[in-house]
Design a protein around this nucleic acid. Sequence first.
DNA 1: TTGGCACTCGTTGCATGCAATTCGCCATTG
DNA 2: CAATGGCGAATTGCATGCAACGAGTGCCAA
Lengths: 246, 246
Amino acid sequence: MTTDTTSYAPGKAATPEERKAWSSTSAGRVVTARKITRAEELRLILADEIVSGQLAPGAPLDESELARRFRVSRTPVREALRQLVASGLVDARAHRGAIVAHPDPERLAGMFEAMAELEALCAGMAAERMTVSERHALQSLHDQLRAISYLGDPQRFHEVTEAFHNAIYAGARNAYLAELALATRKRVQPFRRAQFRNIGRLAKSHAEHNRVVLAVMQGDRAAASAGMRAHIDTVRREYATYAGKA
Amino acid sequence: MTTDTTSYAPGKAATPEERKAWSSTSAGRVVTARKITRAEELRLILADEIVSGQLAPGAPLDESELARRFRVSRTPVREALRQLVASGLVDARAHRGAIVAHPDPERLAGMFEAMAELEALCAGMAAERMTVSERHALQSLHDQLRAISYLGDPQRFHEVTEAFHNAIYAGARNAYLAELALATRKRVQPFRRAQFRNIGRLAKSHAEHNRVVLAVMQGDRAAASAGMRAHIDTVRREYATYAGKA
DNA sequence: TTGGCACTCGTTGCATGCAATTCGCCATTG
DNA sequence: CAATGGCGAATTGCATGCAACGAGTGCCAA
């Protein structure tokens, strides 16, 4: 416990100014979401830190420590952790604390396989259902990726890749399926960090996307699915090569 | 609030005997899970009541009321609700309470479509990966279903159907994918209650399963997928026919 | 020296009180 | 008469204190 410095009066735990402090760590991504609860804020921040790799798989999530860090009581921290447990990003056992989820290799392989199929499914549906303007928007993102792969900016490439996949989710016209795919993507993300340091991977990734984009533009469901499945399968293999320590 | 009858001393809110009372409502399914926390208990109970239809979509979930009902404080109730929100069975908005999830028709259609594809995927994978004994076990469940469909016991038919689908999930050798499929199944379940009152549906369901079982026995992935997709699609159409009020 | 055991400490689980927000109701006004 | 503004009640959100559980440590006995 060790209530050390702060005064901590009830309902006045931290001024808004104080509370801004914590988001300074996450590189300019300050989301000034004012209309949501503290627990929801914490959930979003912690999820982001897990997905972005700031909190590595296996890292302990101490309630009191997080409460101090975010200048709130343990209650909203606990609620945020419970939701993260339910979403699969965090593992917890009663009286034994919570850690960032760290699936064993077999489970991780299953997540990759499921991701491949979900993405393939979305791509196939998108090939059939996207509007003309959506197809053009997808093509535009794809072109951007080519340009970025030449420049060799992994961070930017990653961001636009996310947009690319999100565009396909949206094109599938199934919000629920999109949520499943996105959630799976996020849960796998902490284990593919290393890939984005590999510049050579960018061009290959773009080439794989090319098959998908072509099929989507032509409305060829089977080809779009196959292309996306192959792409994610490459991602999986790439991970398997890089990761000896998983 | 109205602290009416019980004394309610801290840490001694209810004796074990008192706490047994609530589970008597759910028809003999008393799970004497002693080693888990109260919040976890509540989560399981509420999820079961939602899936089983005791709590209908749209029903309000008042924290204080649930706390009284289960003889606990609001804290574990809140944690259970948060987890149910994260799992999609409950919707909640800050300061406005929680209700049993009630997706609009479009979203529900998406859930049915996703379920069809997930089940199809599992069936296809199971056709390739099941052991011989697993295939025989599946066949056995299928035979049981035929017998039950003759007897016309919808409740029992439902239970064995669940076991049938779970056997296919297990045969797919992908725990993560199985979780997705099962979660989706549970989220859709509250909207297909009516179907199990329709005795005629039982025989048709069994006939649809037949295609899947045959394909699985022969290791024919494509046929197993197609069969399962067609089955779930029938389920969806059946729902669409029954439900004017969704 | 080693195995078992009780004790202690740290962390999590739960209860409770207060603060904050929302919504319904009623009065006031155009 | 309708619309709007503010007040009150009810409900949720958060802080805090205490209880319970687990893990580590040191002691005792074999």
